[in-house]
């Protein structure tokens, strides 16, 4: 429970940074999973979840006609579900737990996007009707209070969402770990490879242009050359 509360507080702070602050990148799954894994006591598997989720969401921009998933929420829920299960059950199969954690993260991100839509409507009603008071002192105070209030709202919404979703994610991970047999475990490993491929496709698509493709190829060749020389 203290771990869960601490992770929810971290999620709130990261949400303020990501959607109200200067977007330091700490809210991206690859970084947030490192923090969450460290707090929960299972950094390596949490980081594995973070990497796969980052690759899944690396495609730049939202898909046509869909809302962008709430990646911050997904990253934290996925990494926390995995780390909390593995921190308390050392016999659990890491690959299955990581795959279930990634799935929990993907689902949480989609649900989070729906929740944000609802709170976003309320926020719009509040901020969309902003007017400046007719007195300088009141105007300064109202501006400061509006900015602080809006930032806090972002943090509180994500704090609550994480608090609600981590227990569900954890339960889902435990369920998969218990129910998936040997074949299921192999399927989970295949699925992780397939999800990671989204990141590869996104990079190739983003930089596979006439001008940039040679630099993409140079980067790949450099890594292969260094690997071959070693």
């Amino acid at each position: 429970m203290p771990d869960l509360l601490l992770i929810a507080v971290i999620a709130g702070i990261l949400a303020i940074d990501d959607r109200a602050g200067w977007q330091s990148l700490l809210g991206e799954p690859v970084f947030s999973s490192l923090i969450v894994g460290w707090v929960a006591g299972a950094m390596a598997p949490a980081l594995q979840v973070g990497v796969v989720l980052q690759l899944a969401w690396l495609s730049i921009g939202a898909a046509r006609g869909t809302r962008r998933p709430h990646t911050l929420l997904g990253g934290i829920v996925g990494a926390a579900s995995t780390a909390l299960v593995l921190a308390h059950d050392s016999d659990a199969r890491t690959t299955v737990v990581v795959a279930a954690g990634v799935l929990a993260g993907l689902v949480a991100a989609e649900l989070g996007a729906v929740a944000l839509r609802a709170t976003g409507t309320l926020r719009e009603r509040w901020l969309g009707t902003f007017t400046l008071p007719s007195n300088t002192h009141d105007a300064s105070r109202k501006l400061s209070m509006t900015v602080i209030g809006a930032a806090l709202l972002v943090g509180i919404v994500d704090f609550v969402l994480v608090l609600l979703m981590i227990p569900l994610g954890e339960r889902m991970v435990r369920l998969f770990e218990a129910r998936l047999g040997v074949g299921g475990g192999a399927g989970a490993a295949w699925w992780l490879v397939a999800v990671s491929a989204i990141g590869v496709a996104a990079v190739v698509r983003a930089f596979g242009t006439r001008v940039l493709v040679r630099f993409l190829a140079a980067g790949a060749a450099a890594v292969l050359l260094v690997g071959w020389l070693r």
Binding site: A63, G65, L106, L180, G181, G184, A194
Partner: peptide, 23 residues
């Protein structure tokens, strides 16, 4: 991605399918 589909959502749907095939 080229067709503008949400690949992350497709990944969610694929999970039970891949696990079933592997089993």
């Amino acid at each position: 991605i080229k067709r503008g589909l949400n690949v992350a959502r497709i990944a969610i749907v694929l999970f039970p399918l891949v696990v079933l095939v592997a089993m």
